[in-house]
Design a protein around this nucleic acid. Structure first.
Lengths: 240, 240
DNA sequence: CGTAACTTTGATTAGTATCAAAAATGGTGG
DNA sequence: CCACCATTTTTGATACTAATCAAAGTTACG
């Protein structure tokens, strides 16, 4: 199977693609590279000459303050673009790190731009993709700025679980959890120690249970309620 | 002078527009409406059938948790689009509020979409505009998630001052400050009381001075340093 | 099997929120 | 133009959430 199939199908969910669109996507030139968990895929300041598609695994966009504090800006799952924002920018403003072992297909910017220019439906799908990322970013800002520690933790669990569910990479109530508690903290503006305590609270309340690299949601309605979660911001129009 | 001139010129700074592009922008159908400070321009859940351009004044995008806490997601100045993210979305995910007395030109979505479709240079400029907004959003997340109260306050002062400077709406070291301390707090994830204390600190250190609706930057290098501010994320390529 | 990374728990501290109230400011109508 | 009222700013006292520091368990990995 074509390695970009998952990516192409994801875009097809965003706009109506015809045969020629799909063909254009599936025949994009690319070079696939494998990354170990914890390694950098791209770095802030890098010249951006290609656009990455995450073929498998999880990745995170991060940014660091001058004093060394790291914020996770977004988490990406299989089939998602990890740095589309660089398409019109010379230098990347972010780091992208592999959270788990991950494979990335790098598509030359030029090829991507040509496809965008020539195929309006793909252009539309990518535009929606950017808007959806921006919408998630806004919800994260609300999360970090206004919610309590417990709410933030519950909220991110809701989001990632639902996104995996919708992407079809995970069924049941057991969801892959791609982050260490340190990274979870960096995504929510909390310390790893406090993440640990909040997870314990959710566990003690029977809302979730945790395992090595997964979280089981035992009481989705209550988790959603604790998290103040409503999925509209994910902009998954076709599926909600 | 054409009321959309400031807007059109701003886009011309983002990409090379030819005569026909400018004409297309300047002849966009629109209806201008005036809003008093503190009133809502659009609301979360509203059907989005037009796109707003801020002709003068300041506006803020906001989002509220289910428990009623409000986060300011972005602040917009003269000439900026206030809800371009709605162009491909049916229902708005945000509120837009007038921070000061403000005038907004509402452009029907259809007209905007046609222009985007037919004028590649405008499409490019708008795409960059969205990416710049997203980049600012990322920096805000870093700000709220990882910086101390004093840094956050200083950072937002740097950003808004510089943006006004670049837009040419404010020269000198005295910058219009469009927010109450309450709103400032909602933008930084702090309480109004704490904003007040941080401003006092900056004042006592001789870095800024404050007046009714303005802030004077007395020591820009030190403010920048306290804020951990570097302007790259604003994506003002043509000017930096 | 040994070691580094990660999780868990406890004790203490620090930063910011909350509560309260006074002072200053701005807008409005008379 | 002044007086009044609502909003905003300022300051003080106290409470609480989450950070920090520290160390013991646990897990993953080479």
């Amino acid at each position: 199977m074509n390695s970009l199939a998952i990516f192409a199908n994801r875009l097809a969910d965003r706009s109506s693609l015809v045969q020629a669109d799909m063909l254009g996507l599936l025949t994009l030139p690319r070079r696939s590279t494998h990354f170990a968990a914890g390694t950098h895929i791209t770095r802030q300041g890098d010249l951006a000459h290609s656009i990455g598609v995450l073929l498998n695994g999880f990745a995170a966009k991060t940014k660091t303050t001058g004093r060394g504090a790291r914020q996770v800006l977004s988490v990406h799952i299989q089939g998602e673009l990890i740095d589309l924002q660089n398409i019109l920018v010379e230098k990347s403003e972010y780091n992208v790190e592999a959270l788990t072992s991950a494979t990335v297909a790098f598509i030359p910017k030029r090829a991507m731009l040509d496809l965008i220019e020539n195929r309006p439906a793909i252009r539309l799908a990518l535009w929606i993709d950017i808007l959806a990322d921006a919408s998630i970013s806004g919800e994260w800002l609300l999360n970090v700025g206004q919610r309590t520690a417990l709410e933030r933790v519950a909220h991110l669990i809701c989001e990632l679980s639902l996104r995996q569910e919708v992407a079809g990479t995970c069924k049941g109530p057991v969801y892959e959890w791609p982050m260490t508690q340190e990274q979870f903290g960096d995504a929510t503006g909390l310390t790893a120690v406090h993440i640990n305590r909040m997870l314990k609270t959710l566990r003690d309340d029977g809302i979730i249970s945790t395992a090595k690299r997964s979280i089981t949601i035992r009481d989705w309605p209550r988790l959603k309620q604790v998290a103040d979660f409503s999925q509209g911001y994910l902009l998954q129009q076709r599926l909600s």
